[in-house]
Design a protein around this nucleic acid. Sequence first.
DNA 1: CCTACCGATCGGTAGG
DNA 2: CCTACCGATCGGTAGG
Lengths: 195, 195
Amino acid sequence: MVETRRQQIETIASSLFREQGYAGTSVRDIARGLDIQGASLYAHVASKEDVLWAIVRRAAERFEAEIEMAERATAGAAPVERLEAYVRGHVGVLTENVGQASVFIREWRSLSPDRRARIGARRDAYENRWRQLIAEGSQAGAFAPTDPPLAAAYLLTALNGIVTWYRPDGPLSARAIAAEFVNLSLRSLGAEERP
Amino acid sequence: MVETRRQQIETIASSLFREQGYAGTSVRDIARGLDIQGASLYAHVASKEDVLWAIVRRAAERFEAEIEMAERATAGAAPVERLEAYVRGHVGVLTENVGQASVFIREWRSLSPDRRARIGARRDAYENRWRQLIAEGSQAGAFAPTDPPLAAAYLLTALNGIVTWYRPDGPLSARAIAAEFVNLSLRSLGAEERP
DNA sequence: CCTACCGATCGGTAGG
DNA sequence: CCTACCGATCGGTAGG
């Protein structure tokens, strides 16, 4: 697959931001990864923050698309199955593009106030869907009684931790990780093991 | 309690590093919090990194002391009780000094290579104790069968997530958070609810 | 703890 | 995409 220059920039910036943070990465660091001069980067992007913004937006879109798919695929199903779909989708987004996902999770605070607010609202909406599902499952008796906001925070950060250690060429496949994390997630909510 | 100037520096730096990251915080930012000139900070510290190093070391000591206490308090007890002590200790360190704990968890990568390696070894040793306990509990049948390294990573990042949203003056007390997170943790490992 | 200052690097622009 | 350059800020030092 041919990557446009713009895509290359975002890919390299993602991994640099993941490793060194946004503030710890200079425009020249990014340019070096493309074998061009620092100032030449501005032929392709308007600012350093625009690169961060593009990465964060793309990641947000992927999380949202994935949870929409999970919703549609398990509409009317039992809470346990719906949660499994949520977890698989979330872990899938995490592992398919760790750099991008990691930046979304950890570096969105570096955005300008208005952009930070906009992405914050989308993050809240996403997390609310998890709270909602947990609340429903809890009320239906499929999950143990729990505080939905707290349980959602617990669950999502547990999953998000994957970005701190996951490597695509590591010993554990994304499938194996997803399988184990589905079990851990279901148990966390007191759901019975799947058959 | 009277804080020495040095302690004030670490306290202010902790909260700034937590909010803006180490790279995103300047020496002048820290000095401003003390109402002194940027250069005057160097009457108290050798370098910016020394401040980070001091914070990280102190946090590491607290986590280590707390798990030692948990070990002693529950020596010979059932895995469920031991895990509960681990979780309470960990959450206690997190909430008692969120700034310091947050910097320990999220900013240790900004240390120089040798210091990063040293703190990395201590983090590994700490995580190993969790793995060990999970493995023992799993073998004894007190916990559901699981991959101890993966389960430990899941659990610890779930707990660590607390530093991203906890505020001492927030609506949830540290006690209440600890209680709920103990439940979530025990359930995550498939332990039966405590009576 | 201050003033005065240092070289290096930062994000970014002008003009090709 | 390059060269040449900008003002601002960075971590840090000298000398009081």
